[in-house]
Computed example of a mutant assay.
Amino acid sequence: MLNIADTLHAWCREGRPFALATVIQVSGSAPLPPGTSLAVNTDGEAVGSISGGCVEGAVYELCAQVLKDGGPPARARFGYSDDDAFAVGLTCGGEIDVLVQRVEPATRPHLTAALDEVVLGRPAAVAQVVDGPEELLGRTLSLLGDGSAYDGTLGSDNEDRAVVARARALLRAGRTGVVDVGGDQDTCPEKLAVLVHVHAAPPRMLIFGAVDFAAALSRAGSFLGYRVTVCDARPVFATAARFPYADEVVVDWPHRHLERTQVDTRTVVCVLTHDAKFDIPLLALALSLPIAYVGAMGSRRTHEDRNRRLSEAGVTKAQLARLSSPIGLDLGAHTPEETAVSITAEIIAHTNGATGLPLSLGVGPIHRAAPAGTLPARATA
């Protein structure tokens, strides 16, 4: 749903009804994850995609029918048919379950409020019932900010409280996902599957070392949806003019800035300084923090010397094992731009639990779910 937040926000503000088709489950290899949506308004305008083009026509027709009939939400499954190569289905071989429902903005002001937050870049989540009793299917509630406030209802106070508790955890992790609740008297008698659409604050990329490689990496990080900070102790190099793609440029000793700044389990740290007096205290601190990724630039000789110094500084073997050094994947990179691709490729592979090997050498589905709490916010929907 939040992959098309800008358009849905405009339609809700205008009070225009629309049909919303949402991927609620994926089996095997499929191009887009749960939470991705396509919407059609009463003028026949469509926005979004749920399959990269394979089944859009059929989903559009379902949306048009739901808008016309005004009936209850409808579920449909699309997969590949070996028997009929011209059948509507996914050419990638996977299966997707889709929920199609009519949305009346006037009856869901909480949805408009959540979309207000999303378009302003603030954290929000929308919980949507995707499996359960027919009368609850498609119901939504919204969480704003850190999730301490919510509006809307999924059926009863018990059901709402049970879902909100689980949705807050996903909001903190910055991850869209399905949660199962209910089926017992302590929470709610009805068993529900609820898809929590999450828009979290962008994850952070902290780049230490105001060098040419940092300029290219800050641009790549911004493109991937990170909030990028470049930090260096030398004011002559750490200037906003040299790093136009960084959200902030900080003049400070690297380890001191890391001590003072806010990080979480989605934060990535890239150390490009090549200087032991900066690297050692910075990496010793970074490797002790619960962050997603720590990488350091340098030759293999530099890496060996750095590891020795870190060990002498009290860094444990388990902590050293978290360090990606030399930083990046082996792409044969030479230029700052190529090196930025190498580094970000390693970050993507690391945060998604992937191998970094060519897909042509692998087996099985090429699309996979990422580990909890690792996806950049703008990469999920």
Rank of each mutant, 00 (worst) to 15 (best):
R161M: 15
H367I: 12
G356M: 04
V47F: 10
Q101Y: 03
G221R: 00
T22L: 08
Q319W: 09
I280C: 07
A201S: 12
R13T: 15
R266H: 11
M205H: 05
T344V: 15
H255I: 05
G93I: 04
G145Y: 12
A19F: 08
S156P: 01
C12M: 11
A46H: 08
V47I: 13
G353T: 08
G332Q: 00
V194L: 07
D43P: 06
V196S: 06
G53I: 08
H199I: 12
G35T: 11
I343Q: 00
V23Y: 03
A74K: 13
A241F: 13
Y293P: 11
S299A: 09
R322E: 03
P336S: 02
D252L: 03
S360T: 13
V23S: 02
M297F: 05
V179Q: 04
V294K: 01
Q262C: 08
A201R: 09
L206W: 00
T316H: 01
F237N: 02
G52E: 04
M1K: 09
I280Q: 04
V271C: 10
G52D: 07
A87D: 03
A296M: 07
A210H: 00
V100Q: 02
G94E: 01
F243P: 00
E248T: 15
S142F: 08
C54R: 09
A292I: 09
T339F: 13
E159L: 15
H197P: 05
G35S: 12
R16L: 10
G183T: 12
D6G: 14
V269G: 00
R204Q: 10
D264N: 14
L287W: 03
S342P: 01
